[in-house]
Every structure is written in C-alpha cells, then in structure tokens.
Amino acid sequence: MPLDAETALADTPPGHKDELRLWLRLLTCANLIEAEIRRRLRVEFDTTLPRFDLLAQLERHAAGLTLGDISRRMMVSNGNVTGLAARLEEEGLVERRVSATDRRAQSLRLTPRGRREFARQSAAHEGWVAELLGGLGAAEREALHRLLGRAKASVQSGLQENGP
C-alpha cells in the first residue's frame, strides 16, 4: 500500500502541530474514499467521477443548467465541462437547449435515459459510501459529522479573518 502523508508523519518529533496531523488525517480519508469511488465507477459503470458529478448537478436541476453554472458548481473550467457535456450528449444522457433567458447561452439537462442511468449510478454510489464508512456506528457517524461541521466553521471563520 502506498505511503500517505499521514503515515509519513507518524514518527514526527514531539511538538509537531496537532492541527497539521488532523488536516493530514482528513485529507488521507478523503483521498482513500475518492480513489475507491473512482475505481468502482470505472469498473462497474465504465465512467468517471467528473461525469458522475456532472450528471448529479443536472439531476438536482431538472430545468437544466448553463455550462457556466455547471463549471462553477463543479469548480472546474468551462472547457472541462464542454468536453464532458459533448461526450454525454453523444451517448444520449444529456441534451443541450438554448437558454430561455439568454439566447446566446446553452443549457444542459438530463434526458430520460440520463435520468435512468444516473439513478443506477447514484444508488450504487450511496451503497459504496455506506460500505466504506460502515465500520463506524451511528453514534460515531453523528459525532464525526458534528465535529466536522465545527471544523468547517473554524476554517470558514479563519478565511474571513484573513480576507481573500
């Protein structure tokens, strides 16, 4: 198994910052889960996490989203979304429409086939996440969720104090 950043710091001399160790633990967990989700999407659905994420965005907005809206929500460039959208359109999973509010803009939405395919993928995804976190009991998941909420608020507060 490859050495992760957290394991690499296991023998760090005393005085090493607890905050850094905590951040590396969070990063390691997120990376492990993401890598496994990516692997399973590829093996079971012959798809990628960005494709899954784009379909998820469209599932949440039945009326459709512009390419710009999708890129902001996914935090990727318009170019990345354009390429993904073109491939999903070729496969009949999404369709493009001229925006009702701006004739220069195009919006994407799921086709009926895209809705069915995303339903299959998202059900599997939900099961995988439950499986990967299944070693935690309900009370542990609740406590971790609460603590991570506090960590998120701490990060946001720090960002506000330090400005852009």
Rank of each mutant, 00 (worst) to 15 (best):
residue 24 L to F: 08
residue 79 G to C: 03
residue 144 L to K: 02
residue 30 A to L: 11
residue 124 A to E: 10
residue 120 R to V: 10
residue 71 S to G: 05
residue 103 R to P: 13
residue 65 L to G: 04
residue 139 A to H: 11
residue 127 G to Y: 02
residue 96 R to H: 09
residue 38 R to N: 13
residue 138 A to W: 07
residue 81 V to W: 05
residue 109 R to F: 05
residue 32 L to I: 03
residue 61 H to I: 01
residue 124 A to P: 04
residue 55 L to M: 14
residue 127 G to K: 04
residue 82 T to A: 15
residue 144 L to H: 02
residue 145 H to L: 07
residue 32 L to P: 01
residue 132 L to A: 02
residue 72 R to E: 12
residue 139 A to I: 05
residue 2 P to M: 10
residue 155 V to H: 06
residue 106 Q to V: 13
residue 70 I to R: 04
residue 17 K to R: 15
residue 125 H to K: 07
residue 93 L to V: 00
residue 117 E to R: 14
residue 123 A to E: 13
residue 96 R to Y: 12
residue 135 G to E: 02
residue 8 A to I: 06
residue 19 E to V: 12
residue 9 L to Y: 09
residue 4 D to V: 01
residue 5 A to Y: 07
residue 157 S to Q: 15
residue 36 E to V: 06
residue 134 G to P: 04
residue 99 S to M: 04
residue 120 R to M: 08
residue 94 V to H: 02
residue 151 A to G: 01
residue 43 V to C: 12
residue 9 L to K: 07
residue 76 V to E: 05
residue 72 R to Y: 04
residue 144 L to Y: 06
residue 46 D to P: 03
residue 25 R to L: 10
residue 131 E to N: 06
residue 140 E to L: 01
residue 84 L to G: 06
residue 7 T to Q: 15
residue 97 R to H: 10
residue 118 F to N: 05
residue 105 A to V: 10
residue 94 V to N: 09
residue 7 T to V: 13
residue 153 A to Y: 00
residue 103 R to N: 12
residue 20 L to V: 14
residue 63 A to E: 15
residue 110 L to T: 04
residue 37 I to L: 15
residue 124 A to H: 13
residue 108 L to Q: 03
residue 116 R to V: 12
residue 79 G to I: 08
residue 2 P to F: 09
residue 95 E to R: 11
residue 83 G to E: 07
residue 113 R to G: 06
residue 158 G to N: 00
residue 3 L to H: 12
residue 119 A to R: 09
residue 83 G to C: 01
residue 158 G to A: 06
residue 69 D to N: 09
residue 58 L to G: 03
residue 83 G to K: 09
residue 126 E to P: 04
residue 158 G to H: 02
residue 3 L to K: 12
residue 136 L to R: 00
residue 131 E to S: 08
residue 154 S to M: 08
residue 88 L to W: 01
residue 63 A to H: 10
residue 24 L to C: 03
residue 37 I to M: 11
residue 158 G to S: 03
residue 24 L to H: 05
residue 68 G to R: 13
residue 9 L to P: 06
residue 146 R to W: 09
residue 6 E to H: 14
residue 106 Q to R: 15
residue 94 V to I: 11
residue 83 G to A: 08
residue 159 L to C: 03
residue 163 G to T: 02
residue 11 D to Y: 14
residue 135 G to N: 00
residue 71 S to P: 02
residue 54 L to K: 05
residue 2 P to V: 10
residue 67 L to F: 13
residue 121 Q to D: 01
residue 60 R to T: 01
residue 60 R to L: 12
residue 111 T to A: 02
residue 145 H to E: 11
residue 42 R to S: 14
residue 104 R to V: 11
residue 61 H to A: 11
residue 117 E to S: 09
residue 11 D to P: 08
residue 98 V to M: 11
residue 48 T to Y: 07
residue 147 L to H: 08
residue 131 E to I: 07
residue 152 K to G: 02
residue 34 E to Y: 08
residue 45 F to Q: 02
residue 161 E to T: 12
residue 98 V to K: 15
residue 1 M to D: 14
residue 40 R to C: 06
residue 106 Q to L: 13
residue 162 N to P: 03
residue 137 G to A: 00
residue 110 L to Y: 03
residue 84 L to D: 03
residue 116 R to K: 11
residue 114 G to K: 03
residue 59 E to T: 08
residue 127 G to E: 04
residue 44 E to G: 06
residue 120 R to S: 15
residue 92 G to T: 03
residue 73 R to Y: 02
residue 143 A to Q: 11
